[in-house]
């Protein structure tokens, strides 16, 4: 994936959110975008998803512009399920051709076996996020865009979900862009951490993390969190 922007602003009166901005993401790489709230992480993710077309420059996914490239597997901050559809119908809403077997297999992969007939309100918060992940995988397991997927969840649920994400990453080897404000999310899941700062937005630090999320021990995670926090502090100075 290649992101090469020259300018992006929300209205003529405001300061541009992006100036000249370049980011290359290799296939199969898990990149965490870290930065303070409001810096433009989610906007960048929305631009990659094709939701923010008003920019100068180009974003290429597998060599194709975003409006031509296959839709990404997007995981929203909230589960954003359609409450009037059951779990199976939520999957079929974005990929209508799925057979019953495919639906059941996918639900089983995310730990929701046998819950195809359950409506979202009958699922816990963690289960709803799992269904949101299943929906993203059903559309495009090769490119996952994760917008703060662990907000408003307690730590036990987050740990379960992160284990699930690692399993999916290992099985599908997708290209992943993870937006988060929490260095620990990045340390547990990412291969690379891009720290964003300032306006116009710039890459303040680009860290390659050793190992993969699945291999890291709690001590490794703690050390990587320390590294990311140190880099963030240096950016602020």
């Amino acid at each position: 994936m290649t992101i090469a922007l020259t300018q992006m602003r929300f209205s003529a009166a405001t300061e541009p959110l992006f100036g000249v901005f370049h980011l290359n993401v290799a296939p199969g790489e898990v990149v965490a975008l870290i930065g303070p709230s409001g810096v433009g992480k989610t906007t960048l993710l929305r631009m990659i998803a094709g939701l923010e077309p008003g920019y100068d420059g180009r974003i290429l996914i597998g060599g194709a512009p975003v409006n031509v490239a296959p839709p990404p597997g997007f995981v929203f901050q909230d589960a954003r399920l359609l409450p009037w559809l059951d779990a199976a119908a939520n999957l079929r809403a974005v990929r209508p051709g799925m057979t019953d077997t495919e639906v059941e297999e996918l639900l089983a992969r995310v730990g929701l076996a046998g819950l195809g007939a359950a409506f979202p309100r009958q699922l816990s918060g963690g289960m709803q996020r799992r269904l949101g992940l299943a929906r993203a995988i059903s559309v495009n397991p090769g490119l996952l865009l994760l917008d703060e997927p662990f907000v408003s969840l307690d730590r036990a649920v987050v740990a379960d979900l992160q284990a699930l994400f690692r399993t999916i990453f290992a099985a599908e080897n997708p290209t992943v862009i993870l937006v988060s404000h929490d260095p620990e999310d990045a340390a547990r899941l990412a291969d690379r951490v891009v720290i964003l700062a300032d306006r116009p937005l710039r890459i303040a630090a680009d860290l390659r993390l050793t190992g993969t999320g699945a291999d890291r021990s709690p001590q490794d995670v703690a050390r990587l969190v320390e590294t990311i926090l140190t880099a963030q502090l240096e950016v602020r100075r």
């Binding site: 998803a49 094709g50 939701l51 839709p71 990404p72 997007f74 929203f76 909230d78 954003r80 359609l82 809403a93 974005v94 209508p96 559309v139």
Partner: peptide, 16 residues
Amino acid sequence: PDYDELAAVFRMPMAR
């Protein structure tokens, strides 16, 4: 608008 965004990101056709 959240659901419109959902439909847009997954490129759902207008009829659907």
